[in-house]
């Protein structure tokens, strides 16, 4: 039987690779590889051998030039030894092959700044949005309610009923777009998968702390038109078990955390479509 394979890319400041890999395993991926970017650059690991790419949270290059900027630059210009192709070309091939990419937090920032999201009209590498400093001016670690758009094409959020509850941990999570046209497109195509909301997942919220960063239209997560690429500021891999929930000692909760569904959907998609 063919194996469903996930890869978690690390190095230069990513730091959620262990729990992201754990999420993939629990979700049903047969093989999960934590790969250091140097392994890609030296041709020891190739994206082509995987179905699901995880760009995890962290502080790539310390967020020194703005979050994930230096990594976007590295992926664009660095060449792999051997055939000398740019890493970004491997990523584009990965996308063209119909595979899945999930960017979380710093990974989301990276996708947006590389132009992988929202990539309107399939124009990958064309940046039309960004994520910048929270309105409160500070890094925040707090839990947020995320209303899920049931009409979104995202393959990751299928079956989410109402919304999910996850932690955010970032200083640069405020979503901004290049123009009103871009925003209109995002909304009309239902690409804004997750929005910061009230506890009942009834309506998007713009006020701190429920909306922790002041994101445009309360956007917390975004997908491309294919639904196979998605990014979000909150951390699904940080809520895999009920004991991760801040109120697990006082509420009766299912054993499995809200974040796991994204990885389960990814595994399900790979099995149904890519194997």
């Amino acid at each position: 039987m063919a194996l469903a394979k996930a890869i978690v890319l690390t190095g230069n400041g990513t730091n959620c690779e262990m729990e992201a890999a754990h999420a993939c395993r629990v979700a049903g991926f047969d093989e999960v590889r934590i790969a250091h970017i140097s392994e890609l650059l030296y041709g020891e690991v190739r994206l082509d051998d995987f179905h699901f790419l995880n760009l995890t949270g962290g502080f790539l290059d310390g967020d020194d030039l703005g979050s994930a900027k230096a990594q976007a630059n590295r992926l664009k210009y660095a060449r792999t030894s051997g055939n000398g192709e740019h890493l970004v070309d491997q990523i584009l091939r990965f996308i063209n092959d119909g595979k899945l990419i999930l960017g979380v937090c710093n990974g989301f920032q990276l996708m947006v700044k590389m132009g992988l999201l929202p990539a309107l009209g399939g124009s990958y590498l064309d940046q039309s949005a960004t994520l910048t400093f929270n309105d409160c001016g500070r890094f925040q670690d707090r839990w947020v309610y995320l209303k899920c758009n049931p009409d979104s094409p995202s393959v990751f959020t299928k079956g989410i009923n109402g919304g999910i509850y996850l932690p955010i941990r970032h200083g640069e999570g405020k979503f901004l777009v290049d123009s009103d046209a871009v925003l209109a497109k995002i909304e009309s195509l239902n690409l804004s998968v997750l929005k910061y909301s009230d506890a009942d997942y009834a309506a998007p919220i713009m006020d701190f702390p429920l909306n922790p960063n002041g994101s445009t239209n309360a956007i917390a997560g975004l997908c491309d038109e294919s639904g196979r690429l998605m990014g979000l500021m909150p951390h699904p891999e940080a809520f895999l078990h009920r004991t991760n929930h801040p109120r697990w000692t006082r509420e009766s909760l299912p054993e499995e955390g809200d974040g796991l569904i994204l990885f389960r959907n990814a595994a399900e998609y790979v099995r149904s479509n890519l194997l």
Binding site: F139, Q140, D141, R142, A238, N244, P246, R247, T249
Partner: peptide
Amino acid sequence: VRRYDHEVQGGSVVKPFIGIEN
């Protein structure tokens, strides 16, 4: 405390702030 990431690595069980309103 909110300025410090207290949940990375995914194993957080009892957090610095808990209760009905966290």
